[in-house]
Design a protein around this nucleic acid. Structure first.
Length: 701
DNA sequence: GAGCACTGC
């Protein structure tokens, strides 16, 4: 590597050889290759390519900081391939937090390198592996590389690993950083890393990687003027509306992007601005006001990319105003935006380890997010950003960067993955920001109860199997025990339905009654898991007909995704030698087998009726049945819940009616009456059951 | 009698 004359093929004749030939394919370069090469050369990162390669030769880790438009994602991995980091069957990998990014960047880079996608350049994401024997450069999701590491902790197939968008601090990227920090010091064969981030956290990354050299690449951005409120806003939503209206009335042509927190607020914003601007088309020009959020169907999302409406009145031009969630901050980029309105808020997930509950809360954003939002106004020409808070608040009240995901999540699965990676001492693992100690203890405790960890904290055979599934540990445990209850086919379907993207049941406003009636047709007397199973079976009986979904108020996309997940789970079951068997539907008690299978994974998430509400076992939290549950009117004595959500009340959602006997039979180690809250109904019930069983046993003897 | 920021395996 040391004597390598870098980048031998980029210019025809540059290194004296006949380099009209692509060294990776042996074919003549196409005309398009040279055309794209010209545009590549204009990217800011292109000038720094020799410097980057030199730094990489001299250091195991390089931190590269580059703003949007620097070209780092497409160019840096290519520079490394050209510098010889993908020789002898070894690869360069570049991770992305999102699937679409991995796919679209790989496609672009394959064009730039004049190769067929899936050959020398490819990508790997869940459900799709577009790589081959000849792949030298692979784009993948961070979660996918982590999966690979679980079977090959030293990532021996890779000569160099590029972690892109590291500033987003996803769970997977955080774990990969910690893992690779160790691997680069212990692996016998050479390995290099490039950690790429947006400007803000540069110093933090440099410090974490023991003073790794830093390469800073300017972005290509136009200046954006920032305007603050003179006084704090009493109501950011009202300010957002009036600012949008003000821009349309007074500012030069250019589209508007307004950041709000959620669907309801966004739809309300769209309504309000549309109403207020009725009849102004002739004077102010045609206006299109559009919503943007993740749960919007793709065709409606796509509309934000349509050009602004055109105007045939001279001197007047059209404009579009987009009200969006955070999705436009990272995942989607809309060109043509000149004005940004920043409410200063977003919805963020918080996790409370004490009661194991998750909640979404409207939270002030960080300065890093504010800068990112502002940047969205300067992509095509100089822009303006209206921040709906004061300059003082920006400087003094906003935190520098948001808390990373690892400090806001249940890390049960992460801990299981760490164990599979062979990480011994979890508490001292070198995370850039460690999770809260209580969250870590909760995760270890939970995995121990599930049987994934031994008393000594070592990963059990069951734990290894659980880690194979792309599911939360409770669900993996449920699938692994399912063959013992004779219903693994049903369990796989339920698991797939639970982990499908998006809500299965649609409830469009104005047609809620019809939607509820449609749902009632699938209702299972024992609860929501059974109802989901009924829906899945019906969906398959109707040959996955999307019209049938629509008529029955079911989310066709979610069902398709569930079916996809189901096939993946089935493959893993086969791989792990777990039998795929179905219950005998002629047995009137057939659902009991399924319910007991659910208990085998979710025994820690049980609630027992107490006066008007329910108390969770052990944690003794007061909860209520979510009104969407089919058990809402039935109110069983004891139930298993899939999730605990904090909204207007403490709700448990997606429920199944179970018997206390099953809890005692399936999880006796958890249902020791002595561990239950003193004199609670569940404790008394457990004691009664145990006494009853003992006296029966004595009677038999 | 109600709520859905955003990802990922």
């Amino acid at each position: 590597m040391a004597s390598n004359p870098y980048l031998q093929h980029l210019e025809p004749g540059e290194n004296g050889s006949s380099s009209n030939v692509n060294p990776y394919t042996g074919k003549q370069f196409s005309a398009r290759y040279f055309k794209i090469l010209e545009t590549r050369k204009t990217l800011p990162v292109y000038e720094r390519r020799d410097e980057l390669v030199k730094m990489t030769e001299e250091n195991k880790v390089v931190v590269l900081v580059g703003e949007t438009g620097s070209g780092k994602t497409t160019q840096v991995p290519q520079f490394l391939v050209d510098a010889g980091y993908a020789k002898d069957g070894m690869m360069v990998a570049c991770t992305q937090p999102r699937r679409v990014a991995a796919m679209s960047v790989a496609k672009r880079v394959a064009e730039e390198m004049d190769v067929v996608l899936g050959q020398q350049v490819g990508y790997t994401i869940r459900f799709e592996d577009k790589t081959s024997q000849s792949t030298m450069l692979k784009y993948c999701t961070d979660g996918m590389l982590l999966r690979e590491a679980m079977h090959d902790p030293e990532l021996l197939r890779y000569r160099c690993i590029v972690l892109d968008e590291a500033h987003e601090r996803t769970l997977a990227t955080d774990l990969l950083m910690g893992l690779l920090k160790g691997v680069i010091t212990t692996r016998k064969s050479p390995i290099n890393m490039v950690v790429m981030s947006a400007t803000l956290d540069a110093e933090k990354f440099v410090k974490y990687f023991e003073n790794a050299p830093l390469l800073q690449v300017p972005g290509r951005m136009f200046p954006v003027g920032i305007f603050y409120l003179p006084e704090p806003a009493k109501d950011y939503f009202e300010h957002a509306i009036s600012t949008a209206v003000h821009i349309h009335q007074n500012e030069e042509p250019g589209d508007v992007l307004c950041f709000l927190t959620g669907e309801e607020e966004i739809e309300e914003g769209v309504r309000r601005v549309t109403e207020e601007m009725v009849g102004t088309e002739k004077t102010l020009g045609p206006l299109k006001v559009l919503p943007l959020y993740a749960s919007l169907p793709p065709d409606r999302q796509q509309r934000v990319f349509d050009p602004a409406p055109s105007s045939d009145i001279p001197g007047v031009s059209g404009r579009k105003i987009i009200f969006s969630t955070n999705i436009a901050e990272t995942s989607l980029t809309i060109d043509g935006v000149v004005y940004v309105i920043d409410s200063g808020f977003s919805k963020q997930k918080t996790y409370n380890p004490r009661v194991r509950s998750e909640a979404l809360q409207v939270t002030p954003i960080s300065r890093a997010s504010a800068k990112q939002r502002t940047g969205r106004a300067g992509r095509t020409r100089p822009g303006k950003c209206f921040r709906l808070y004061t300059e003082k608040a920006f400087k003094n009240d906003l935190i520098e960067t948001s808390f990373p995901e690892i400090q806001r999540s249940n890390i049960c699965n992460l801990v299981l993955q760490m164990k599979t990676l062979g990480i011994e001492n979890l508490v001292y693992f070198d995370f850039m920001d460690p999770p809260a100690p209580e969250t870590m203890m909760r995760a270890l405790e939970q995995l121990h109860y599930l049987g994934a960890l031994s008393d000594e904290g070592e990963l059990s055979d069951l734990g290894y199997k659980m880690a194979e599934f792309p599911l939360e540990p409770e669900l993996s445990k449920m699938l692994i025990s399912a063959p013992n209850f004779g219903c693994s086919n049903e369990a796989v379907s339920i698991a797939a339905m639970l982990s499908a993207a998006g809500n299965v049941f649609l409830r469009p406003s104005g047609r809620q009654e019809e939607a509820d009636e449609a749902k009632a047709k699938f209702q299972h007397p024992d609860g929501d898991h059974g109802t989901l199973l009924n829906v899945y079976h019906s969906y398959k009986q109707h040959n996955e007909d999307q019209n049938w979904c629509f008529e029955n108020y079911l989310n066709g996309r979610a069902l398709r995704s569930a079916d996809n997940v189901r096939s993946q789970l089935e493959r893993i079951m086969v791989k792990l030698d777990l039998d795929l068997v179905s219950v005998d539907y002629s047995d009137p008690n057939h659902f009991h087998y399924i319910a007991r299978t659910i208990v085998s994974g979710y025994f820690m998430q049980a609630a027992y009726a107490d006066r008007a509400a329910y108390l969770t076992v052990k944690d003794n939290q007061l909860v209520q049945i979510h009104p969407s549950s089919v058990l809402m009117s039935k109110k069983p004595k004891c139930l298993i819940f899939n999730e605990f959500v904090l909204t207007s009340k403490n709700y448990v959602r997606t429920l199944t009616n179970v018997r206390v006997e099953w809890l005692l039979d399936i999880a006796p180690h958890y249902y020791n009456p002595a561990d239950m809250p003193k004199d609670s109904k569940i404790q008394l019930e457990l004691e009664r059951l145990i006494r009853q069983r003992e006296s029966r046993k004595r009677a038999r003897e």
